[in-house]
Amino acid sequence: MIVIDTDVLWLAFAFHKDKRQATNSIFLEQVQADQPATTIYNVLELLGKMSFNLSPDRLDEWRSWLIDAYQLLIIWPTNPSLTTAAPTFREEIFERPYQKMRTVQMPFMDSLILNLAERTPNATRFVTWNARHFQGKSTLQVLTPEEYIQTKA
């Protein structure tokens, strides 16, 4: 399973003239074969950014323009398929992210997302345009969309 970071999805929706757009689009097409996923924290981060430009009605349709469009699995912290018992709120929101922040110097949102992605069975890779922020800090292989495409060539 490939876990996709917010910046990849944000680029697809908001920065149509960005020089990475073509690569981003190819990645989002190719990743369909590898069961793409994103965490609920990524979804909320993206919806927060999109809320400045979308009407409330359009924002409410996020499942169709985000999840259905990219065939994404949403990873929840209480997902019964997680190998460990459902974490408490304190573990999920404070203790686990804090350990990442403390040991590998990582911002809160990144640590929250990465913690959940790492605990997801079958997750093998984390794809982000900010790979340098995560490399050496995760049990998952960290790639940019461009690097992912190169592994498929």
Rank of each mutant, 00 (worst) to 15 (best):
N24Q: 08
I2E: 14
I93P: 02
T139F: 00
I149Y: 01
V142G: 06
S81R: 09
T120Y: 09
F52G: 05
T120W: 02
D110V: 03
T78Q: 03
N24P: 11
A33G: 08
E29A: 08
W129G: 07
Y41K: 04
D7S: 12
D18L: 04
P80W: 01
I93C: 06
E95Y: 02
L66R: 04
L59K: 07
E92S: 15
G136Y: 01
T84A: 14
L116R: 10
L46N: 08
G48M: 08
R58F: 07
M101I: 09
V31S: 13
A33S: 11
L66W: 01
L112R: 03
H16G: 10
E118R: 05
T23S: 05
A12W: 08
M50Y: 01
N130V: 00
L47G: 07
H133D: 15
P145D: 07
L112C: 09
E118A: 03
H133N: 14
E92P: 02
A131I: 01
L73Y: 10
T38G: 02
E95H: 02
I149R: 10
M1V: 07
Q35G: 08
Q99A: 13
P36V: 06
P121R: 03
F89W: 08
A85W: 11
T78H: 07
W62P: 08
S55G: 14
S55P: 09
A37Q: 13
E45G: 05
A153W: 00
W129V: 05
L66E: 06
D5V: 10
W62Y: 07
T103Q: 14
W76H: 12
A22D: 03
Q71S: 15
A33K: 15
S64F: 06
D34P: 11
I75W: 08
E118F: 04
F108V: 10
T103R: 10
M109C: 05
A14G: 10
R90L: 06
Q71I: 11
T88L: 04
V104Y: 04
Q105M: 09
P121W: 08
A85V: 11
L143C: 08
P56H: 07
P56Y: 15
D34T: 12
V31Q: 12
P97A: 05
S51H: 07
N115C: 09
F108A: 15
N24M: 04
L28A: 14
V31R: 12
F126W: 03
I93H: 11
V3Y: 06
A153F: 00
N53V: 09
A22E: 11
L47F: 06
A37H: 01
N79Y: 01
E118M: 09
I149M: 02
P97I: 07
R96I: 10
S25E: 15
F89Y: 03
L140Y: 02
W10Q: 07
T144S: 15
R20D: 08
K137G: 02
H16L: 07
N79R: 06
N79Q: 12
V31K: 13
T124A: 13
L72W: 12
W76T: 12
L28Y: 14
L73Q: 14
M1T: 11
L59D: 09
P87K: 09
Q135P: 01
F108W: 11
V8N: 13
N42W: 03
L72R: 13
N42S: 14
L114S: 07
K100C: 06
